[in-house]
Simulated assay, not measured.
Amino acid sequence: MILFGSIVNACLIIIGALLGRFLSNIPEQMKETVMYGIGLAVAAIGIQMTFESTQILIVIISIVIGAIIGEWMNLDDKINGLGKWIEKKLPSKKEGPGIAQGFVTATLIFVVGSMAIIGAIDSGLRNDHDVLIMKGIIDGFTSVILSSTLGIGVMIAAVPVFLYQGLITIFSTQISRFVPDELLQFFISEMTATGGLMIVGIGLNLIGITKIRVANLIPGIAVVAVIVSVVHFLF
């Protein structure tokens, strides 16, 4: 079953989020310190991802153009609106930052990154689910920590993660037929670096230093694909 890896990944996120709820009754001061710790760790992960780039100018251009497109489309408000709509539909007590923030933050963290793409392609082409299972374990532990401070909205992030990785898995055969391996590797490195900057933004938001509308930067991933394709075929 080619979607086995994506299913395991989504299930581990759900399990981790549920386990994290048992840690939610910690003192507020401790919860605040834990939140800052999570923010620092997330920012550090993002910085590490940024070093994957071999052409940092591509990352900068992609972020800038992506931000313009994202602001024009108002993606951040729309995604947060989806989270708030889910929050209204689910019976839950008002806890911490609410379901919307947990959903948006966790979705961005779990979706942005090279493991999601590489793992999904491996599942589709070779029926090898090792990368996605490893990612699922990492995401599961991360969701334990996130849900302990951001709430049960983290669990709902399993849905977009499954859809995103599942679609890549299903279409991976077509990707391999039309996209040269060299171009794919080029895209993955620059996409990882661009996503890393978004992760840094999430970390800074969790700490409370900034209020970056990170979701409005998401079109930058599509811009990366366009730029690396042009660079690959022209140069």
Rank of each mutant, 00 (worst) to 15 (best):
residue 207 I to P: 08
residue 158 A to N: 05
residue 132 L to R: 05
residue 182 E to T: 11
residue 178 F to L: 14
residue 164 Y to I: 08
residue 187 F to G: 11
residue 133 I to Q: 05
residue 130 D to E: 15
residue 134 M to R: 11
residue 177 R to F: 09
residue 131 V to C: 06
residue 196 G to L: 03
residue 205 N to G: 06
residue 130 D to N: 14
residue 148 S to A: 13
residue 156 I to M: 13
residue 197 L to A: 07
residue 153 G to A: 11
residue 155 M to V: 14
residue 125 L to N: 13
residue 202 I to Y: 11
residue 148 S to G: 13
residue 176 S to D: 14
residue 183 L to Y: 02
residue 177 R to W: 13
residue 138 I to R: 04
residue 189 S to C: 06
residue 159 V to C: 03
residue 171 F to K: 01
residue 196 G to S: 00
residue 193 A to P: 09
residue 184 L to W: 12
residue 183 L to I: 01
residue 139 D to E: 01
residue 167 L to D: 02
residue 188 I to L: 13
residue 148 S to C: 05
residue 127 N to V: 15
residue 183 L to H: 05
residue 162 F to W: 04
residue 168 I to E: 02
residue 130 D to F: 15
residue 161 V to E: 05
residue 181 D to F: 09
residue 161 V to I: 10
residue 172 S to H: 04
residue 172 S to E: 00
residue 175 I to M: 11
residue 199 I to K: 00
residue 141 F to I: 12
residue 172 S to W: 00
residue 193 A to F: 03
residue 203 G to Q: 03
residue 188 I to M: 08
residue 146 L to A: 00
residue 139 D to G: 04
residue 146 L to Q: 01
residue 132 L to N: 07
residue 206 L to I: 12
residue 136 G to W: 00
residue 200 V to I: 14
residue 205 N to Y: 07
residue 158 A to Y: 02
residue 127 N to C: 13
residue 131 V to P: 08
residue 185 Q to S: 15
residue 130 D to I: 15
residue 192 T to W: 03
residue 185 Q to I: 10
residue 152 I to M: 13
residue 138 I to Y: 03
residue 144 V to T: 07
residue 192 T to F: 04
residue 180 P to G: 00
residue 204 L to R: 10
residue 157 A to D: 07
residue 177 R to N: 15
residue 135 K to F: 03
residue 181 D to R: 13
residue 137 I to L: 11
residue 172 S to C: 00
residue 206 L to Y: 01
residue 155 M to L: 15
residue 190 E to I: 06
residue 194 T to D: 12
residue 161 V to S: 01
residue 157 A to W: 05
residue 130 D to V: 15
residue 173 T to I: 06
residue 143 S to G: 08
residue 191 M to T: 12
residue 131 V to F: 09
residue 159 V to G: 03
residue 168 I to R: 08
residue 135 K to N: 08
residue 187 F to I: 05
residue 185 Q to R: 12
residue 152 I to G: 11
residue 168 I to F: 04
residue 159 V to I: 15
residue 198 M to I: 09
residue 156 I to E: 06
residue 180 P to Q: 02
residue 145 I to P: 00
residue 184 L to E: 03
residue 191 M to W: 09
residue 191 M to F: 13
residue 150 L to P: 03
residue 128 D to T: 13
residue 133 I to G: 09
residue 188 I to T: 06
residue 204 L to F: 15
residue 137 I to A: 07
residue 166 G to C: 07
residue 182 E to C: 03
residue 201 G to M: 04
residue 141 F to Y: 01
residue 184 L to V: 12
residue 135 K to E: 02
residue 163 L to C: 06
residue 139 D to M: 02
residue 147 S to I: 01
residue 156 I to R: 08
residue 158 A to K: 06
residue 128 D to Y: 10
residue 151 G to K: 09
residue 132 L to K: 08
residue 140 G to T: 03
residue 200 V to W: 04
residue 205 N to L: 11
residue 191 M to C: 11
residue 137 I to M: 04
residue 150 L to W: 04
residue 144 V to L: 08
residue 124 G to R: 10
residue 139 D to C: 02
residue 145 I to G: 07
residue 187 F to Y: 13
residue 173 T to F: 12
residue 184 L to K: 10
residue 139 D to A: 08
residue 130 D to Y: 14
residue 145 I to V: 14
residue 172 S to N: 08
residue 185 Q to V: 11
residue 201 G to A: 12
residue 169 T to N: 07
residue 139 D to F: 02
residue 167 L to S: 10
residue 124 G to K: 09
residue 180 P to S: 00
residue 130 D to R: 15
residue 135 K to S: 03
residue 128 D to L: 11
residue 198 M to G: 02
residue 188 I to D: 07
